[in-house]
Write a protein that binds this DNA or RNA. Structure first.
Lengths: 166, 166
DNA sequence: GCGGTATTGAACTAATCGGTTCTTTAAAGT
DNA sequence: ACTTTAAAGAACCGATTAGTTCAATACCGC
């Protein structure tokens, strides 16, 4: 629900229906809506399926490609990446959530960098990892638009062609 | 206010304060909050300063570079691109707003493509334009994070180096 | 200075928001 | 079967939401 509607627009009523847990139950387990959001985000980041894509041996461009292709996918109707989407609401998110997002980002970048490093490219590994990450963010955002959903695969192919040339 | 807080989180009270116009005045001019948002978005898209960056003669890579560097800038404290940020809320935005976003995107892509075309690259112009646009979306999102705000310029430099090689 | 027109301020509506409390019901342990 | 514990339901809270109404006030053309 947070993924789809964001923090502000996900009402307690909808959260009850989505979780199947009564409001009483929710509040006996979480102190408030912010903590519920925080734990949802933690849950998402912890078992981020994208992460495993980047740990397949041997590390390399193929992992990056899989990550970009399957990363911002639509899981159960959700679009894009929950973490990326949440960055829209940074202004109203609890500080702990922001930290979590920043930390998750750093981790992801490190994973990407390790895959790039395995290919021993000529260009700077950190720069390339940053590029991949920015591209990933862009793809995640575009996932929401129907007009650019179709050619997402082609976009990744194009980028990969560039990356592999390094 | 919509730019900063998004549609859901921008309250009428804040809108009054931000516009300096009374609620009565707001509602005498706009039918509801949705129309006010719609017109705000139209206003933004119409005088999108980024657009002019892409029309400087002669067309070419330099325009693209300027666009990527100054495009997702912070205008009056606002971060990233209003249009990109709004894509987070597509689920609750009025259909007219979604259409507007899609149309603005197409226009922007066309402008980018024209600049790329002027350079007569070997690669497909449309593919390259899509790449620039995705990268732009990524940069806009990352603008919200303090950790990745600093090296945005470097990122653009890296991408431009790639693009110019085509 | 006068009259018409915007603009404002404040009171008000109905609905919804996040959050609390308490009673009832269901489940589990022994 | 009885007791303890967990979960559910529902009523309720004050605050806030988008939106309306109307009287008071400011402004402007004449």
């Amino acid at each position: 629900m947070f993924w789809k509607h964001g923090f502000a627009d996900a009402s307690l009523q909808e959260l009850e229906k989505a979780t199947g847990v009564n409001k009483s139950g929710l509040y006996s387990e979480f102190s408030d809506k912010e903590e519920l959001f925080l734990e949802s985000l933690r849950f998402y980041l912890d078992r981020l399926p994208q992460r495993e894509l980047l740990m397949v041996e041997p590390l390399g461009w193929d992992n990056i490609e899989q990550f970009l292709k399957l990363g911002p996918r639509n899981t159960e109707g959700q679009k894009g990446c929950f973490a990326i989407s949440s960055m829209r609401e940074l202004a109203i998110l609890p500080p702990a959530a922001i930290e979590m997002l920043e930390r998750g980002r750093v981790q992801l970048k490190r994973l990407i960098a390790r895959n790039i490093e395995a290919e021993k490219p000529k260009a700077d590994v950190n720069d390339l990892a940053g590029m991949v990450l920015t591209f990933f963010a862009g793809l995640s955002v575009e996932r929401n638009l129907k007009s650019s959903r179709a050619n997402a695969g082609r976009k990744v192919d194009n980028l990969m062609q560039v990356l592999r040339s390094f």
